[in-house]
């Protein structure tokens, strides 16, 4: 009986905190959407308002007709699809071998993979440019894709996964005379669905949002992906005025694919984040 009022107060305070922070975390997106549908003077006068004065689609028309947005979108789709497919395939292949197959050098390779995860990506910018330049593939789709088509963290996730499932099924297949790759393809991969979905989603998100790598891989505007194009818009390729509705609209469109996937596959994102926590 005595605890009842205190519990109510706690619940009230708890919800107040949660709602306040939900606003803090989500309202910028509301502002982004609302202002992308405003006219420029309206956006400047009422930046906080979630309702556009007159709703205007002018900025979206200009995004598609006055900028290279369609080109960036196409490049982003192409690069992301190839990167995601490549990462899922190569990472799971290597993860499986490191978890299950016995071969000389396995430990050394795994140690190498762990070491690579620890290398801070941003210090690799100049090194990556040097090797792309030296190999003569700078400023090409190959440069955008090949250097990041495998991902050490993905290999790690897949290895951990394969170690957590029993080996009996594949052993049965092997006794039946199936080769290693055949066993992997038709017995192991179907079992690994949850891990593969997690890896697919993390790869998609990572590739879609990738920015610094594009800075040192390409300079030809025909090869820009969405983040690169967006960064270019902001740095003043638009000419006069701040043009916030247009910039916000372009950023919004670039956010939508990952947002949709996030809402649908939320628990896989959560798994990806917490898996890291358990490993530490």
């Amino acid at each position: 009986m005595r605890r009842q009022p205190r519990g109510l107060v706690n619940t009230f305070v708890g919800y107040s905190i949660l709602i306040f922070f939900a606003l803090v975390f989500l309202y910028p997106f509301v502002i982004q959407l609302a202002n992308s549908l405003k006219t420029e003077p309206d956006a400047a006068a009422n930046p906080l308002s979630p309702v556009p004065g007159p709703v205007s689609f002018a900025s979206f028309e200009r995004i598609f007709e006055g900028t290279d947005f369609p080109l960036w979108l196409g490049n982003s789709l192409l690069v992301t699809l190839v990167l995601t497919a490549g990462r899922v395939f190569f990472d799971s292949l290597a993860g499986y071998a490191l978890a299950r197959l016995r071969f000389a050098g396995r430990r050394a390779i795994f140690a190498g993979v762990v070491a690579v995860i620890a290398v801070p990506g941003v210090v690799l910018l100049i090194p990556k440019f040097l090797v792309l330049n030296q190999l003569g593939i700078y400023d090409s789709y190959t440069a955008l894709i090949l250097p990041i088509i495998v991902d050490a963290a993905g290999v790690f996730i897949m290895k951990q996964f394969f170690e957590s499932v029993p080996a009996s099924m594949e052993e049965a297949a092997r006794i039946d005379g199936a080769g290693v790759f055949r066993t992997y393809w038709s017995v192991v991969l179907p079992m690994a669905r949850p891990a593969l979905i997690t890896l697919t989603i993390l790869s998609f998100q990572g590739s879609w949002n990738e920015f610094p790598h594009t800075l040192v891989a390409v300079q030809n505007p025909d090869l820009f992906t969405l983040p690169r194009g967006l960064a270019d818009l902001v740095s003043g390729s638009l000419g006069t005025g701040t043009q916030y509705p247009l910039k916000l609209g372009a950023a919004l469109l670039a956010t939508i694919p990952v947002a949709v996937i996030f809402v649908i596959f939320q628990r896989y994102f959560v798994r990806g984040a917490t898996e890291g926590a358990e490993k530490g």
Binding site: A22, P28, F29, Q32, A259, A273
Partner: peptide, 22 residues
């Protein structure tokens, strides 16, 4: 609430920077 708090983390750093410029 968990989703709301986590959502900004998965979006593009460039796109979010544009929003915060505004």
């Amino acid at each position: 609430f968990r989703t709301a708090f986590y959502f900004p983390s998965v979006t593009s750093s460039v796109a979010i920077s544009v929003v915060f410029l505004f």
